[in-house]
């Protein structure tokens, strides 16, 4: 095989360009350019995770909806039938499921991102690529799972006689917020897990508590006296947003909670990127 490498071919390929200099602390310069060069690898890593996700599972992709469906059933029983919380005229399963969807998108993205570097340690110690691709690509799986649940929600919503409204168009925005919050936090956790495996135990624990602290099983807008406390939790704004758009505006949007969410997301992502980039060069030595 003697395909010679022409300069044009070389520059289109996602490897180092001509005239690369390696020095301590120099990786900075090529980083964002490299991230763009390696975009195909991002696609491949995401595709691998999605493809492998339900291999050798008899129920396959059904698992993506069994979990939220059961959680919804239990929450409806506890919050509606035992605690008798108000529904405001919306079928309670729809209230819960819309909350569960928001929560699950966040939770599965967060746990995926947090475990991503250690899960790919064999790659990190053997090949160069911008490490940011690893947590980024892990988001794909959560999105695929989410789309399965979204289809389930649509079916359930129609069955209850609720037709999708224009509010649905805003859903991508709130999805982006859930992913952003998970990604920002996940960057911290995954970089910390490289050195301190303690975070592997911390993340599931946080998520377990979080589902009760956040208004997943009940409507936050029916408790005005707790509004400000709720608003401190960035997930409140996101879950409110999901309900507002999926229930066709039959759930109030709280501007305070939304602003708090946006601000916290911006802070965690900026901080997460800063911390990730700062520790990244040591990953291969420590992992």
């Amino acid at each position: 095989m003697d395909v010679s490498v022409s300069p044009a071919q070389a520059s289109s390929a996602p490897a180092a360009a001509t005239g690369l200099v390696i020095e301590a602390g120099r990786a900075e310069r090529h980083y964002w350019r490299d991230l763009w060069r390696y975009r195909e690898l991002l696609g491949f890593l995401a595709w691998r995770d999605v493809k492998v996700r339900y291999k050798q599972a008899v129920l396959g992709v059904a698992w993506a909806f069994i979990q939220p469906a059961l959680t919804t059933a239990i929450f409806v029983f506890v919050f509606r039938h035992l605690a008798k919380l108000p529904d405001g005229g919306v079928p309670y399963p729809l209230i819960v499921l819309s909350g569960v969807m928001a929560w699950q998108l966040f939770a599965s993205s967060l746990s995926g991102t947090s475990g991503s570097l250690v899960g790919n340690s064999s790659l990190i110690s053997k090949v160069y690529f911008p490490r940011l691709l690893v947590p980024l690509s892990s988001l794909a799986v959560s999105l695929v799972d989410f789309s399965v649940v979204l289809a389930f929600f649509l079916g359930l919503s129609l069955w209850f006689g609720h037709w999708p409204s224009w509010h649905w168009l805003a859903l991508p925005l709130f999805m982006a917020m859930a992913l952003g919050a998970a990604f920002g936090l996940g960057l911290w956790f995954t970089a910390l897990t490289v050195k301190y495996r303690d975070f592997r135990f911390l993340v599931p624990f946080l998520l377990q508590i979080g589902i009760f602290v956040s208004p997943v099983g009940y409507r936050a807008d029916f408790f005005p006296q707790w509004r400000h406390l709720f608003a401190l939790n960035p997930m409140t704004g996101i879950i409110d947003g999901f309900r507002w758009s999926l229930l066709g505006g039959q759930h109030a949007l709280s501007p305070v909670a939304l602003l708090v969410s946006l601000a916290l997301i911006a802070i965690t992502i900026t901080g997460g990127l800063w911390f990730f980039r700062r520790t990244e060069r040591k990953f291969a030595d420590v992992i």
Partner: peptide
């Protein structure tokens, strides 16, 4: 291979690695 950084020193590579 750019997997880890040198503590000191400099390497220049001319070509796709």
């Amino acid at each position: 291979s750019r997997i880890t950084e040198p503590t000191t020193g400099r390497i220049s590579l001319h070509g796709r690695v």
